[in-house]
Simulated assay, not measured.
Amino acid sequence: MADITLYDLPGCPFCGIVRSKLDELDLEYDTIDVPRSHAARTEVKEVSGQTGVPVITDEAQGVEGMPESSNIVDYLEETYGEDGA
């Protein structure tokens, strides 16, 4: 089990941006596919307080339920990119 978990909706362009950054940084991560219906996204709501995706958790860094693709990409770059690693 990886430290990073991505809550993902297949076909979501914002989720794709985060997946691309994770792959670019060669990070191991688990993916949890969320339902298309916001009302059924109970797990992602418990983690992040909202139903939008993408959301990541990073147990190694104490990150629980970070939303918004731009914030996630910035975090990944700062934490695991060449300047952060």
Rank of each mutant, 00 (worst) to 15 (best):
C15W: 02
D83Q: 10
A39T: 13
A2D: 13
I4H: 02
V34D: 03
T42A: 12
E43F: 00
R19S: 12
E68S: 08
G81C: 07
A39E: 15
S37Q: 15
G49D: 06
T42R: 09
D83S: 12
V34G: 03
I4W: 02
A2N: 08
T79D: 04
S70K: 12
G81P: 07
F14Y: 15
E77R: 12
D58G: 05
L6E: 11
G81Y: 08
E68W: 02
V18T: 15
I17Y: 00
D83W: 06
D58S: 05
L27K: 14
I56H: 04
L9S: 04
D23N: 15
Y80L: 05
G11I: 09
R41I: 10
D74L: 13
D3K: 06
L6C: 07
D23G: 01
S69D: 09
A60G: 07
N71F: 07
E82I: 02
G84A: 15
P54E: 08
P54A: 06
P10C: 04
D30F: 00
G65T: 11
L27N: 10
V53I: 14
V53Y: 01
V55N: 08
Y75C: 06
K21P: 01
S48L: 05
M1R: 10
P67F: 05
R41H: 09
E43G: 01
I32S: 03
V44A: 06
L9C: 02
D74T: 14
D58I: 06
M1I: 10
L27I: 10
F14A: 02
P35V: 10
D83K: 13
Y7I: 04
H38T: 12
E82N: 10
M66G: 06
V53C: 09
V55C: 05
L25I: 13
T5G: 02
L22H: 08
I32D: 06
L9Y: 10
P13V: 07
L6K: 04
Y29G: 10
L25C: 10
Y29F: 15
F14I: 03
E78H: 12
I56N: 06
T51E: 13
I32Y: 04
P35Y: 07
A40N: 14
V47R: 12
P35Q: 13
A60Q: 14
D83F: 09
V18C: 05
F14V: 02
D3C: 00
D3E: 15
E24W: 05
E78W: 01
E77N: 11
E78F: 01
Y29N: 11
G16N: 07
G81N: 10
T57L: 03
T31E: 14
E68Y: 04
K21H: 01
